[in-house]
Design a protein around this nucleic acid. Structure first.
Length: 113
DNA sequence: CACCTGACAAATT
DNA sequence: TAATTTGCCAGGT
């Protein structure tokens, strides 16, 4: 099994209303290279993978995607229609935001059962 | 077919 | 305290 597959599997385990970070995933997979995780999600085309529940270490999600035009329609299948859509989804799932761009990681960071 | 680069993060200097 | 380096895979050019 490749890193990508493990990333996808991990992301899919995230419960509704929860989020996780690139770093957490990287560690869980036994690597220090969080770039791979981001790259994995980038390369992902599986509509079942909830990429919108993965944010950076600070809980920031919008700027990352906003600055990369190509993600607005998404390589991530159903995941994004733009960063505002992503934020909306997260809020709908029960995730609270500290401000317009930061998820409340303290409350919603995913931990395995 | 070889080289470039990318949704990140944490330890050094 | 901020800037730099290390981690090191896969896909794109």
């Amino acid at each position: 099994m490749k890193f990508f597959d493990q990333v996808y599997a991990f992301v899919r385990e995230i419960a509704l209303g929860k989020v996780t970070t690139y770093g957490k995933i990287a560690k869980a997979l036994g690597t220090k290279d969080a770039r791979k995780v981001g790259w994995a999600l980038h390369a992902n085309s599986d509509p079942k993978t909830p990429c919108h529940r993965v944010v950076d270490r600070t809980g920031r999600v919008a700027p990352n995607f906003a600055r990369l035009q190509r993600f607005e329609r998404s390589d991530c299948g159903q995941a994004f229609d733009g960063w505002e859509e992503q934020k909306r989804r997260l809020e709908t799932e029960g995730v609270t935001f500290i401000d317009d761009m930061h998820v409340d990681l303290k409350e919603h960071l995913w931990h395995r059962p």
